[in-house]
Computed example of a mutant assay.
Amino acid sequence: MVVAALQLLRSPPVPAAKHRILWGSKILQDPPTVTHAEAMAEDDRGLFKWLSNVDKFGFCFISGVPATPEATEELSRRIGFLRETQYGTFWDFTSDLAKGDTAYTTLALGAHTDTTYFTDPCGLQLFHLLEHTGGTGGATLLVDGFYVASILKELHLDAYELLSTVPVPTHAAGEPEALYTPSTRQTPVLKHEDGVLVQVRWNNDDRSVIRNLKPDQVEPWYEAIRLWYKLLSSPDSEYWVQLSPRLLTPILPSSCGTVVDNHRVLHGRSAFTGKRRMCGAYTGMDEYRSKLAVLSERFAPDPVTADTAARASVNGRSVWHPAL
């Protein structure tokens, strides 16, 4: 079993991974962006462009979003119905410690993915800075976890294999009414399917006591997460951007919303002062993939399935569609 798993990790990626575009800090020169008008247009072409960017890069900015929670929620629902968690369905919050979570503080947050303590971590996260007054700081941090993993695999294969096989216990216990832990032990930092990396699951603040290590794995595992963190926090990996409801720049014109693939891109922020008001929501990975698949059929159809749909179809969809 172990030998087979390691052989799977060493095998070359299958074609399903080819559409990904890995990136580091230099993406600041031309980050994937769509306008709010494009994303909200009735013909859905802008929505397809938006979700295609997320599919390729793991994130996308949406420029020109009105700085209101109503506009942000309407934008979120363009993807699909929202996923309710212990933080609600749509969140609108400041650093008032209303919830037992570091997001509700002014502290710096290192690169992390959200809801690692769920059996099925949330898929997409959309967040939008509505207000920041009376202070400074609060820059947004984005890191491509797949890019960092590719470097770790190239330079430290043994560490990569440990992070791909050792389950990491996690929990959320900040609220008196909640105590979340995954119902599966299949929770390594790096999750693979058919030899392809499909998910990064990392939040050091939510990590519980490690209890699945053999004695001879303890020091190598902690060395592995040291190497992982060193690469995550490298200037080559970190993309920092100062978002503002009123900031106008050539690259990010006006108020920007941000969508990240929570299974791939880690996010964080620098410490800040003053009042900083954020809002946003989660969408499930299945809802996002469904919307992207339907839009792909309309705007970038596979020629074979499109041709066969004319002769054998269900609801206009080819019976030879890859998903059927």
Rank of each mutant, 00 (worst) to 15 (best):
H156I: 02
R185F: 09
N203R: 09
V189R: 01
H171K: 15
H192A: 00
A139G: 07
N204K: 12
L155H: 15
L141V: 15
P167M: 07
R185H: 11
V166I: 15
V196D: 01
K214E: 13
E177K: 03
H171Q: 14
V143L: 07
H192P: 04
V148L: 00
T165K: 11
V200L: 10
L197I: 07
I210N: 12
L142V: 13
I210S: 14
D194H: 13
F146P: 00
Y160N: 01
D158Y: 02
K214A: 10
T181L: 06
T140E: 02
T187L: 10
S150V: 14
E175I: 11
L190S: 01
L179A: 12
Q199N: 15
P188S: 08
A139N: 08
H192F: 13
L162V: 07
L155R: 12
L190A: 04
D205H: 13
P176V: 08
P169G: 09
G195Y: 07
A173G: 12
E193L: 11
V200M: 07
Q199E: 13
F146E: 01
L213Y: 13
L163D: 04
L179E: 11
D144V: 05
V200W: 02
P182L: 09
L179D: 08
P182C: 07
A172K: 08
L162C: 07
W202F: 15
K191C: 01
L163V: 08
K191A: 05
I151V: 14
V189K: 02
A172G: 10
L141N: 06
N212T: 09
V143N: 03
L213G: 09
H156M: 01
Q199M: 15
T184E: 06
H156Q: 01
S208P: 05
R201G: 01
D206V: 14
V198I: 15
L152I: 06
Y160I: 00
R207Y: 06
N212E: 07
A173T: 15
N204W: 08
K214Q: 15
A178R: 09
A159S: 15
V168L: 04
A139E: 06
Q199C: 06
Y180S: 05
Q186F: 10
A178N: 10
E177P: 02
F146Q: 04
E177Y: 05
I210H: 09
A159V: 09
T140H: 03
A178M: 11
D144W: 03
E193N: 13
L152N: 00
G145A: 03
V200E: 06
A172S: 15
D206T: 11
D206I: 13
T165G: 10
R185C: 11
G145H: 00
P182F: 06
G174M: 06
A178F: 08
K153G: 01
S208F: 15
A139F: 05
E154V: 05
Y147F: 11
V200N: 03
S150I: 11
L213Q: 06
I210V: 09
R207C: 15
I151W: 07
K153I: 01
A149D: 00
V168P: 03
G174F: 07
I210R: 08
P188W: 02
V166H: 03
R211A: 12
E175R: 14
L190P: 00
T165H: 11
W202R: 02
N203V: 12
R185V: 12
P167R: 04
K153V: 00
R201F: 10
W202N: 06
T187V: 08
T170M: 03
E193I: 15
L155A: 13
L190F: 02
G195W: 04
P188T: 10
S150A: 12
S208W: 13
